[in-house]
Amino acid sequence: MTTSGKPASFEVRILRQDAPGEPSRWERFRVPYETDMNVISVLQKIAANPRTIDGRDVAPVAWESNCLEEVCGACTMVINGRVRQACSALVDQLLADRPGEIELRPMSKFPVYRDLVVDRQRLFRSLVRVRAWLPIDDYSDRGPGPRQSQAEQEQAYPLTECMSCGCCLEACPQFQKVDLSEYGEGTSDEQRNAAFDRSFLGAHAISQAMLFNGHPIGKTSAAERLDALMAEGGIQVCGNAQNCVAVCPKEIPLTTSIARAGRATTIHTIKKFFDH
């Protein structure tokens, strides 16, 4: 302990994996304490001196990061058991919550590429499934779009803040990892997407579907989005544990989106029944 009550160093336990499908293992590192560290700077310290506590020189730990200000979502990992962004995880806070040690794991719901880097293709595939875009296919000038009311803007804005980080999926008890191992080495994109398309969409995609269904141009494909929400792996898989909203770093009202999607699909089902 230094005079300020801060430790001289602390331990970092990292769940490592060399390549996709390889077994994982824990490795422990000791990192000298500095003020104002975050988990990215901890990983930089380890990269500069990749030697474990028991004195073995190992390959530096791989991780992803870009913005370093919690807007890109790339550095998402499981820190002390809870999914969050490494760049905004402050060491002082982590050590206050759990003195002496920090534990880092890759997200468990996605395949690991290497160490803390995961393959989040399924997350983006879910956005494709619900058509999370505006259906405009050309560059012609259509003049100004329809106006959105203040109330609509206020409902939409928080939903636009999603950075596709995956926290809401990692923490969801209904979102299970898709096992692609049955396809062996050379899984084709079609096989992979077919497997993804049968699995749960996740809260982020449900919320994005509601965002675009509330948009004056997005509305034109509202029915397709609702059909996607009601397909296999759709909104019905949600079990209302509400972890998604509790862990979303952008504080997106995901459970409100889920309930609004529940209402919209209820009405959509009735309409389809009587209008066909």
């Binding site: 058991g81 809870r82 923490a171 008890p173 209904q174 299970q176 898989v237 079990g239 209302n240 544990a241 509400q242 972890n243 509790a246 862990v247």
Partner: peptide, 18 residues
């Protein structure tokens, strides 16, 4: 059977109710 409870890591009231 299709769910995997995780109240250990995410001890929120709604998660316990799940």
């Amino acid at each position: 059977l299709g769910g995997s409870s995780n109240t250990g890591d995410y001890p929120y009231a709604e998660n316990y109710r799940y």
